[in-house]
Each structure stands twice: as C-alpha cells, then as structure tokens.
C-alpha cells in the first residue's frame, strides 16, 4: 500500500523539462536562468514557456540563456538576444512600444469608457428621481387625495 502511495506521489510530481545536465553550478545564475526561461515562449509548442517545454529548440534556448548568463550578460541583454532572432513573440509579456500601444492601452480605454457610461447613466437616473413636482402638480395631488372616498 505504502509503495503504491509512493508511486502515485512520483507520478503526480510536476514534469520538469529542465534536465540535470543543464543546471548551472552557481545557484544565483541558475535562478536567473529559470526566471528568464519562464518568461520566454517556446516557438514550437507556442503556449508553453521554454522552462517547461520538452521541445528540442526549447532545450537549446535554455542552454543558450545559461551560456549568455555565464558570459556575463544582464537579463535585459539575454532578452534582447532572443528577441533579435525570434521577435517579440517569444516574450510572454510584450514590450510597451508603438506597435503594442493598442494592446496595452485598449483594456484601460474600454474600462474608462464603460465606467464613464455607467456614471453618466446613473447620474441621469438620480436627477430624474429628485425632480420635484411643480406647485400645480402638488395642488392636483392634494385635490385628488381629498376627493378620494374614505
């Protein structure tokens, strides 16, 4: 029974694509490499970061990132190196630049316009509700109430 449980535990462990021979000896560099590769899209299996992808190209890129870090590149330089070859597409978080303005700004714009619309509609409704009756109307109501048979 215990053995079966252990087997299940092993089977349920998350699949790590990073292979032991890829891991750097310097834990700080390895940590940076892991962070970068979690942000980089695999170009074969497009919705997976290279950190968890088993594709050959993903492995090559992981090794390349580690090589660049060992050579002394900053994180930014590593990203730039990848973008120069594979485009902004490889970044899960696209940069903020003229061609991506619509992407970044549109949600806030829609929210802003929507909120404006709601505020406008609500203000109209309350204004209508607080409109007081004219003296004539008041008099007529009083008349009607008086005439009402008890």
């Amino acid at each position: 029974m215990k053995r079966l449980l252990l087997l299940f535990c092993i089977l349920c462990a998350p699949a790590f694509a990073v292979e032991p021979d890829e891991i750097l000896r310097d834990p700080a560099l390895e940590e940076r490499a892991r962070q970068i590769s979690a942000q980089v899209r695999c170009v074969v299996c497009q919705n997976e970061p290279i950190d968890s992808s088993n594709a050959g190209v993903a492995r090559d890129l992981r090794l390349l990132i580690r090589e660049r870090l060992v050579a002394g590149d900053t994180d930014q330089q590593v990203y730039e190196y990848l973008v120069a070859r594979y485009g902004d597409f490889v970044l899960f978080k696209p940069p903020f630049k003229p061609s991506t303005y619509a992407l970044w700004i549109a949600p806030f714009l829609i929210l802003f316009v929507g909120a404006g619309g709601v505020v406008y509609a609500l203000s109209r409704r309350t204004r209508r509700a607080t409109t007081t009756l004219s003296a004539e109307e008041e008099a007529r109501i009083a008349q009607l109430l008086k005439d009402e048979p008890r």
Partner: peptide, 13 residues
C-alpha cells in the same frame, strides 16, 4: 549539429 546556427536564423524547426 548543435542547432546553434539554427537559432541565429530563428528556426523553430
């Protein structure tokens, strides 16, 4: 053989 030139070309496969 290493696929390094492939990366320079931006190959995905």
């Amino acid at each position: 053989e290493t696929g390094r030139a492939g990366i320079e070309w931006g190959l995905s496969g």
